[in-house]
């Protein structure tokens, strides 16, 4: 399995990663090597095997629908890169 530089750019876009142009080719080579290694999986016979998402046979635990956490808005916003008047700042989205 080999990934072309174009595919790497597309994956990086989906993952919201900016890649400098000089890194695209090395990433394409490395990711292709990783996918080659991973392709050994196709040798396993998995007909009728149930996929396993998680090691514990458990269902999601439920809790009473009651407030359990205190509001720590100020503490959490204190570590944000840019806030003003209690809201997070981002570049303008709507012109």
């Amino acid at each position: 399995m080999s990934l072309s530089p174009e595919q790497v750019k597309q994956v990086a876009h989906l993952a919201r990663l900016s890649l400098p142009p000089e890194k695209v080719e090395p990433y394409a080579r490395q990711l292709s090597n990783i996918l080659d290694m991973v392709s050994q999986l196709s040798s396993a016979s998995t007909d009728d095997v149930q996929p396993m998402a998680h090691p514990l046979e458990m269902v999601q635990r439920l809790r009473p629908d009651a407030v359990s956490e205190e509001n720590r808005r100020e503490a959490f916003q204190a570590i944000a890169p840019a806030v003003e008047d209690g809201v997070y700042l981002v570049p303008r989205v709507i012109e």
Partner: peptide, 10 residues
């Protein structure tokens, strides 16, 4: 496929 092989390993 990986999730199925994970079951085989388990």
């Amino acid at each position: 496929k990986a999730q199925k092989v994970r079951r085989l390993i388990y």
